[in-house]
Design a protein around this nucleic acid. Structure first.
Lengths: 106, 106
DNA sequence: AAATTATTTGGTTATTTTGCCAACTAACAA
DNA sequence: TTGTTAGTTGGCAAAATAACCAAATAATTT
C-alpha cells in the first residue's frame, strides 16, 4: 500500500469511524426522520449534553451532518441520506449472525 | 433509549466498527475481488502478520468475513458483499468534503 | 522425528476514544 | 443589566484499540 492509497483509506475510515458508535448510529437514524436540536437528542439518548455535542461534532467533521443555529438552539440534519442504504446491509449481517448463534446452541 | 434499543445499536456499531480502520477497509476491497490468504494480505498491507491476523479476526467476529483452512494457509473471503454498496456513499461524502475544502481556500 | 512455514494467541506499550464536569460563549428574557 | 437557557470547548480519568514481539499451534516437508 503506497502512501497515496493509504491516505485514501484513512479518509474513508474517518467517515466510517464517525458512524461507529451506538449513540451516533441512533442520531443518524433520528436525523433521517427529520432535523433535531441538540437538546432533543440529549433527551432521547440520556447522556450529558456535552457528550452529545461532541458526537455531533465528530459527524460534522466527517461531513455526515450539518447544522443551523436558530435562536438558542442548534438544529442538526443529515447531509448524506445515502448512508441509510447501508443500514439494510448491516441488518442482514446481524440476522446472519443471529442464525449462527442459534445453530451453536443446538 | 431503553435497554433493548441500546443493545440493538451496540450490535450495529460492532459491525460498523469492524470496518472502521484503513487496513480493514483495504482488506474488504481486496476480498471483494476474490479470496486471499493472510500472507497475501500481509504483503499488500506491509504490517506484521499478527496485526493482519487480528484485523481479520475482528471482522470474522463481526460476521463480515469467513475463512477456510487449506494446507498451511488460511483463506479469507467476504461473507456479505452488500457492504460494498456502502462505499459508493462514502465516496460521495468524500467528494463533497473535498469541494468544501476548495471553497474554504478560495 | 526435526525443521520449516503460515497463522493465531498472549502480553506490553502507545495512542485514541469516550464521557463527565466545569468553565465559557451566544442568544434571548426579565 | 442580570439572569436564564442551549450549546461548545478544555481538561481529565477510564476504557478501548492498535501494533509489535515472542511464544504456541498446526500442517508440511525433509
Amino acid at each position: 500500500m503506497n502512501d497515496k492509497i493509504k491516505k485514501q483509506y484513512e479518509a474513508r475510515a474517518k467517515i466510517i469511524k464517525a458512524m461507529a458508535h451506538p449513540s451516533r448510529l441512533f442520531i443518524i437514524d433520528e436525523l433521517a426522520k427529520g432535523e433535531h436540536c441538540v437538546c432533543e437528542l440529549r433527551d432521547m439518548i440520556g447522556a450529558d449534553i456535552s457528550t452529545v455535542s461532541k458526537h455531533l461534532s465528530v459527524m460534522k467533521d466527517a461531513g455526515i451532518v450539518e447544522f443551523e443555529k436558530r435562536g438558542l438552539q442548534v438544529w442538526y440534519h443529515l447531509k448524506v441520506p445515502c448512508i441509510l442504504n447501508f443500514f439494510g446491509c448491516v441488518e442482514d449481517v446481524m440476522k446472519t449472525n443471529a442464525k449462527m448463534a442459534k445453530q451453536v446452541l443446538k
